[in-house]
Amino acid sequence: MAEKRYGMLFDSNRCIGCQSCSVACRAENKVPEEVYRLQVRIDGPKGEYPNLVMDFARHSCVMCDNAPCVPVCPTGASYTNQEGINLVDAQKCVGCKYCINACPYQARFANPVTGAADKCTFCYESRIKKGEKPACVSICPANALVFGDLNDPRSELCLAMKRYTAKPKEHLGTMPKLSVIPNKRGGGQ
C-alpha cells in the first residue's frame, strides 16, 4: 500500500461554532494565550429574523502539497514529512519569519515563548504517530471534522469527500489537503 498522506475535511454545515476544537488544540499543543494554531471564525448572524444563519470557517494550516512556506526557509526548519504534513523544526528555526510571510492562509505565527515559527501540525507528534486522531477531530461534538488517509479510498475521509467539497484559495496552486463542505443552510456562502 502507498505511503499514508493525511488530510482533513471541515463540514461548515455541521459546525456549531463552539470552539471546542480550538480549546483542545491549545491544551494539546501548549499554545500560548496570545496566539492560536486553530480558530473557528464566526460570521453572522445574517439574514432577517426568523431566518437567521451563521457561517463558520476553520482557520488553520491547510497542509499544502505545494507549500509556499517550505522553500523560503533558509535553514530547512520548515519541511513536509513523508505523510504530507507540513511541520516546523523549532530547533532549526532562526525566527526569520520568511515562512510566516509566505503563507497565503495566514496560518503561521511566531511563537512568543520559543521565537520559532509555529502552526497546526494535525497533532502529528503527540497523536498521529500514536495512531490517534488530532485533538480537534477527537473533541468535536458536532462531527464537523473528518481526518484520514487521502491515499486510502476506503478511509472515512475519502468517503466523506465524495460530497461536494472546496479547497481554500485553491486558485493559488498550493494544493491544500484541508477540504471544506461549504455552508448550504441558506444565506451561507
Rank of each mutant, 00 (worst) to 15 (best):
M8H: 12
I128W: 05
V53A: 10
T165Y: 13
P112E: 03
G7F: 08
Y6R: 14
M54P: 03
N81M: 12
R5Q: 14
V180Y: 09
P74F: 12
G173S: 00
K46F: 09
E3R: 14
V40I: 03
C158W: 08
V23E: 06
F56T: 01
V23T: 13
L38V: 05
M161F: 02
C21D: 11
K169W: 04
G188N: 07
I42C: 03
K129F: 00
N86G: 15
A27D: 05
N13M: 01
P45R: 00
L145N: 10
R5W: 15
K177Y: 09
K130A: 10
S155R: 08
K133I: 09
E33M: 06
C158G: 03
R41E: 08
P141T: 10
L9Q: 09
A27H: 06
Y124F: 15
P112A: 05
H59E: 07
N86Q: 14
R14E: 01
N111Y: 10
V94Y: 06
P104H: 02
K4I: 15
N29V: 02
P68A: 04
V23D: 09
A107Q: 05
N66F: 01
C140W: 08
R185H: 12
V62T: 08
I128G: 07
V88K: 06
V31I: 12
A144I: 00
I85W: 15
Y164S: 12
C136T: 09
Q189F: 11
A27S: 12
K119N: 09
R41P: 00
G131F: 14
R5V: 13
S179Y: 15
F147S: 11
N143L: 09
V70N: 07
D55C: 03
D43V: 11
V113L: 10
V70F: 05
V62I: 07
A160T: 05
T80H: 03
G84R: 13
Y6C: 13
R108P: 04
Q189A: 11
G76M: 07
H171C: 06
K129G: 01
M175Q: 04
A67S: 07
P112N: 01
C21M: 14
R127P: 01
E48S: 12
P32W: 01
G44W: 01
G188T: 04
K30E: 14
G131C: 05
A144M: 00
Y6P: 11
M63P: 00
